[in-house]
Nucleic acid binder design. Sequence first.
RNA 1: GCCGGAGUAGCUCAGGGGUAGAGCGCAUCCUUGGUAAGGAUGAGGUCACGAGUUCAAUUCUCGUCUUCGGCUCCA
Length: 649
Amino acid sequence: MIKITLPDNSVKEFSGPVTGMEIAQSISPRLAKDVLSVSVNGEIWDLTRKITDDATVKLHTWNDREGKEAFWHSSAHLMAEAIEYFYPGTKFGIGPTVDVGFYYDIALPDNQQLTEKDLQKIEKKMLELARQKNDIVRQEISKKDAMEMFTKKHDELKQELIGELEDGTITLYNQGNFTDLCRGPHLPNTGYIKAIKLTSIAGAYWRGNEKNQMLTRVYGVTFPKQKMLEEYLVMLEEAKKRDHRKLGKEMELFAFSDAVGQGLPLWLPKGTQLRMQLEDFLKKVQRMYGYDQVITPHIGDVKLYKTSGHYQKYGKDSFQPITTPAEGEEYMLKPMNCPHHCEIYKVKPHSYKDLPIRMAEFGTVYRYEQSGELHGLTRVRGFTQDDAHIFCRPDQLKDEFKKVIDIIFIIFKALSFDNYTAQISLRDPKNPDKYIGTAENWDKAERAIIEACEEKGLNTITETGEAAFYGPKLDFMIKDALGRSWQLGTIQVDYNLPERFELEYIGADDKRHRPVMIHRAPFGSMERFVAVLIEHTAGKFPLWLTPDQAVVLPISEKYNEYAEKVSNLLNNSDIRTLVDDRNEKIGRKIRDNELKRIPYLLIVGEKEEESETVSVRRQGEGDLGVKQVGEFADLVAAEVREQLSGLYN
RNA sequence: GCCGGAGUAGCUCAGGGGUAGAGCGCAUCCUUGGUAAGGAUGAGGUCACGAGUUCAAUUCUCGUCUUCGGCUCCA
């Protein structure tokens, strides 16, 4: 008798060894059709593998990550089989699943290259192989036999992987004419895979190390239904429409110029308006939280960054120092604001009663990012951090940290960013050389972050080894339109810089003490934040933020003068208003300005001019009727106040 | 930085060994209009840059720059 415990704690009994598939069949035919993999005592197994002892079991379908993983993992094998068919002798590296789909890193024989055109024939072959419904069979193998097998195939990549595995844990999976080294789990057979799209080809270093050879990485995605693939492709098209690079150009928010240099964004008037709105908003919040605004230069003496340690650590990733001709002084474009802020702290001695000191600056920094890494506004070489440094006593650290979390929430609320991930990054205890500072201080800092998050009830994930070299941090990430995750807000604890800059305060005991620093940037950088904001809103910014809030549309040129008058009145009430006085019909003006995503369209003609009114049309909602100009101004002001209510409670 | 695509009008793109095309935008004119595209005419390009092959290169080859998709990196 074998007892199988299901997630609802019900227990099913079987007379002998049983497979995941048989369990599913015993529950319902529908489940048996949908099930893709099975967890046995927390370990994910093939559906066809015999369970020989009592176990706790969970069945996974397409709706579970574990189900999709088996599906895509088998798809990677199917792709490998098709590639081996066309290119015998191909060496196979690793073929894992990703967020959506899978890839396989391969090396074709004789240095052949795969091109996008080859993908179609591979897809076709995959479909053909899938339709054969070949069973995917698991086989345990000794390390020696595995090594022998892949030596015979001249696949050094797999040999390297096998070399690192322990004997007794090695498994092969076979389907049709293809056998691969693999931990599994897999689908019962290839017939589950109904729709296939190979999406792209890219180079990738073997095992992610740039010193290793470059392999060809083929990305793909598969689905159990053709319709799901079609929906996925439509979704991709939609995402492309939100791409901030496309919208930024279209909406005249920012631009790049070869003449200026790569990765150096030019903020156009509308983008600047948007950015200043964000900056003013944050300044207001920071005033409420007791921050002082400061301004520091864009360059600094190299010695400053040697003191901070940035030069040693990131000198290669900075623009090289500028040397003054006569004296030979060396200045760097500043890659960080913190050293400057430390020097501000040192301008005068501080009492424990002065702390915390919260120093904020929209500080523009320059970093030499690798050219291949530049990407729109999300990865640039010159950008402005909404930076601040909090100098506090150790006993104030946790509270200060919590207040920063509050600020980040105010911002996320004002912009409806509700789908974020909060990640605590801790040091890797196995790799102490990567970090500076004492273990004791690291412990204190890590504990402060973890406790602050707990006390704030924040849902966090924890990553070991992701800390900055000087301290642990809490990052907030948001996904862009294409599902790529970007780090926005960040809060970092630092015991190191106060040490290096010998920052001090006089305690109640009349002795010198060292303050703790918190680095924080709720937006992260203005550039990246605006990029993510564009994709998040598809360019339809909230009213308080959008560069142009209203546009006046005269019915004909006869009413241009009245339109000007209305526009002036509104601008005087701090409502950013334009006039569209082009020689076009009203229908055309409405269409064009709707497409420009301007929230309010104000139509004025004979009736409106006579009665000192405007005919109000809200973006996407149509005609709202006629209102007095003052009445409309109040309406806009009220709406803005409502959107920013988080600021006031 | 590395691997692989791409670069033609302000934008989106078609074309192709004999110095170029569309739509949108822009300009001028006609039209003066009531809630998502009125009409006519016109201007605008060293076909990214540099070299090579050729009688002839925007087209073919190589290099450079930029850009896109990945990889590595990200204080």
